[in-house]
């Protein structure tokens, strides 16, 4: 089950990363190829103009959001990635103390950590739902899209990270038991 979830989240994260990079890249293409080369060409050659206007408006509609949407998508990349990292190699933490302690204490520390993180995630879930209810309908600056769609990652991340954190605690405890 969780494997499938991992695959889905991974695909979403990579896809979102690709899309947000494409926005930035298209902005450069638009600046130099469309608004630069093609424009000069259309200026010299009347027949080119309808085609130039078509491309300009098509790409213009996309890149007008290039100073906003890639940033919004980055939030998705970050939090989907955070789930994947929690499932695999883990986030950067100071492990020296934990490793130097006897096993019982290690378990207790892990328990405290898990409880703290999960507690925070519950809070995050609740407050981010509140945030979306208050401000979700407001449109983003550069397009007629409600910002709530982008904010949806916050409660989603809270749920995903909650699952990953619990799973991590369980598998660590199981490993400890097997070793003894």
């Amino acid at each position: 089950m969780l494997r499938l979830l991992d695959k889905i989240v991974e695909a979403m994260a990579v896809f979102t990363f690709a899309i947000s990079s494409a926005f930035v890249f298209l902005n450069v293409v638009n600046r130099y190829l469309v608004l630069g080369l093609m424009r000069d060409w259309a200026k010299a050659n009347e027949a080119m103009r309808p085609f130039y206007f078509w491309v300009r408006d098509l790409l213009g509609n996309i890149v007008v959001t290039a100073d906003e949407v890639p940033g919004l998508l980055l939030v998705w990349v970050a939090f989907l990635g955070a789930y994947l990292t929690m499932r695999r190699e883990g986030h950067i933490a100071f492990e020296l103390l934990e490793e130097s302690l006897p096993k019982v204490w290690r378990k207790i520390l892990r328990g405290i950590n898990t409880a703290l993180i999960c507690g925070f995630l519950v809070l995050l879930f609740w407050q981010s739902i509140r945030m979306i209810r208050v401000a979700g309908a407001t449109e983003i600056e550069t397009a007629e899209i409600a910002q709530g769609w982008f904010m949806l990652i916050m409660p989603l991340a809270a749920v995903l990270l909650f699952i990953a954190t619990i799973q991590r605690f369980l598998s660590q405890t199981m490993q400890d038991n097997e070793r003894s």
Binding site: A82, G90, F94, L97, E98, N113, L116, F120
Partner: peptide, 9 residues
């Protein structure tokens, strides 16, 4: 940080 909570969290 000392008890090993990931830094971001």
């Amino acid at each position: 940080i000392l008890i090993g909570t990931p830094i971001g969290f």
